[in-house]
């Protein structure tokens, strides 16, 4: 779980992710990333669901149920898996934005970490 501050539209661009749901709250502020296939861990360790993105290779209904229980509003499925229409419907019903990227988890995490570092560097030079 890494703390940062990034808008959903920016996140989507960085990961070149496809938006699968009709809703896409582009200005939503993301502060935490949770990268895992273990729904047990999501349930045990999510504290600020509203500003957390779940990034996972697991694309079944329990991924969305888990997100729903802890108030996670954005789920990104990695490795460009095909995603059932039913899953998209379940996401929409529960106000969850579902995205898909071709990248694997490792690349997704790498891209996000570099972005966060760059932003931190910019912040430093601005203040320094």
């Amino acid at each position: 779980m890494k703390k940062t501050n990034i808008k959903l539209e920016k996140l989507q661009k960085i990961l070149d992710a496809e938006v699968l749901t009709s809703q896409f709250p582009e200005k939503l502020e993301i502060c935490y990333f949770c990268c895992t296939e273990l729904m047990s861990d999501v349930l045990a360790f999510t504290h600020e669901g509203d500003s957390t993105v779940l990034i996972t290779a697991l694309s079944n209904s329990q991924t969305l149920r888990t997100a729903e229980m802890v108030d996670i509003k954005v789920v990104i499925i990695v490795r460009g898996k095909t995603i059932d229409k039913q899953l998209i419907e379940l996401a929409e019903e529960n106000g969850i934005t579902l995205l898909r990227t071709e990248d694997a988890m490792f690349e997704v995490a790498g891209k996000l970490c570099s972005h966060i570092k760059e932003e931190e560097e910019k912040e430093k030079t601005k203040n320094g």
Binding site: M39, S40, D41, L43, A44, L58, Q62, T63, T66
Partner: peptide
Amino acid sequence: EMGFGAGMGLPN
């Protein structure tokens, strides 16, 4: 395979 079985449920 469904994303469970970490032994975290009851403690949680």
